[in-house]
């Protein structure tokens, strides 16, 4: 049975003057999953997130969050989502604790419930030792923690994070990633917009790719990677071989042949039907082979190479990274 949907975006359109910032996009995010929201600058990610957070109104289309339309009851939607924008908190003359207390009250928490929730959130984000410091005295990483704490103060089911790791140092980034993972483990649905694709790939179960206001692709990373190639199930393997003497004879029946040289190896690779192209890496014994058919085809290639007497020292199936997918899918067009 399919998981219920936490986010459903249908035919969303938003224009600013002559610019069509969001151009009829539709996508879904299942409940309890972590999805990456990627695209070049000006793709319309922030606009889409702002519409989801009920900060902007779409020209047409709808967004359902936990089954509730943003048009019907925006205030109810705001109770169910936590929005973390790309701007850091900058309210002057206020401590981190007072800042979170204010937002807790704004979400309707009072008394013991508010105090308990504040303690919980400050412990989770590691802000307890800094609670009495003013926001101006906090580092960027700490401000980002305050921002995350503010987004989860009311225990929302859906989290919308817009560039949460932008400008953070590596340590702060790793800590933020851990917190997001913990939130995901709590069953929250998380949609993260980010340009740091390697980290997104580690955190996200799925990805949504936008460009120039349009949706280019959506799904799990593997599905998107498959879908980005015109010919499905194409993958790359890197094969390292060594030349020299033949395999030592193990039994009397074993074939004793010298290992093929480069030319013979090329002939051998060229004879395998699944292989579409191959080339030798400069300055080494590594060969990069593109083949069609996925993991099964790769296994066949390995078998045929070994049968052909090639001494394979390393055989790696290179999976597409999110960066590869992103570069394949997007064209670099500006909106």
């Amino acid at each position: 049975m399919n998981a219920p949907l936490a986010i459903e975006v249908t035919h969303l359109v938003k224009t600013f003057g002559a610019t069509r910032a969001v151009d009829g996009i539709s996508f879904t995010v299942p409940a309890g999953s972590v999805f990456g929201f990627v695209g070049p600058n000006g793709a319309g990610k922030t606009t889409t997130l702002r519409i989801m957070a009920t900060l902007d109104e779409p020209d047409s289309g709808d967004v359902l969050l936990c089954g509730q339309s943003v048009h019907d009851d925006p205030r109810e939607i705001r109770r169910r989502i936590g929005f973390m924008p790309d701007a850091l908190p900058s309210i002057a003359d206020i401590t981190a604790h007072e800042y979170l207390d204010f937002f807790g009250r704004a979400y309707g928490l009072r008394g013991v419930a508010l105090a308990y929730r504040l303690e919980e959130v400050e412990d989770f984000t590691g802000l307890r030792p800094l609670r009495e410091k003013t926001l101006a005295a906090l580092s960027k990483g700490m401000k980002q923690r305050v921002c995350l704490a503010r987004a989860i103060i009311h225990d929302p089911a859906v989290l919308l994070l817009d560039e949460p790791a932008a400008g953070l140092d590596p340590r702060a980034r790793v800590e933020l990633r851990d917190m997001v993972r913990q939130l995901a483990a709590m069953g929250k649905t998380i949609l993260i917009s980010s340009h740091i694709l390697a980290e997104l790939a580690e955190m996200c179960g799925g990805v949504i790719i936008m460009e120039q206001g349009r949706l280019l692709s959506q799904g799990t990373l593997e599905a998107v990677a498959m879908g980005t190639r015109p010919d499905a199930k194409v993958c790359e393997v890197s094969i390292s071989v060594v030349g020299g003497r033949a395999f030592p004879r193990a039994t009397a029946h074993e074939d004793v042949r010298p290992p093929p040289d480069d030319a013979a190896l090329q002939t051998l690779l060229g004879a395998i039907p699944a292989i579409r192209s191959f080339q030798k890496a400069a300055g080494g014994d590594e060969w990069i082979v593109t083949l069609q058919g996925g993991e099964e085809a790769a296994a066949d290639v390995l078998r045929k190479l070994v049968e052909g007497g090639v001494r394979v020292t390393d055989f790696r199936l290179r999976k597409s990274t999110l960066e590869d997918v992103f570069m394949n899918v997007t064209t670099g067009g500006l909106n």
Binding site: A53, T54, L55, R75, E76, R78, R79, I81, F83, P85, A87, P89, S90, I91, A92, F103, A106, Y107, G108, R150
Partner: peptide
């Protein structure tokens, strides 16, 4: 100041 730094937006994102 709050408007300039988009803090008002955060307040609008609450109920």
């Amino acid at each position: 100041h709050e408007r300039w730094r988009a803090d008002i937006d955060l307040m609008h994102a609450t109920p």
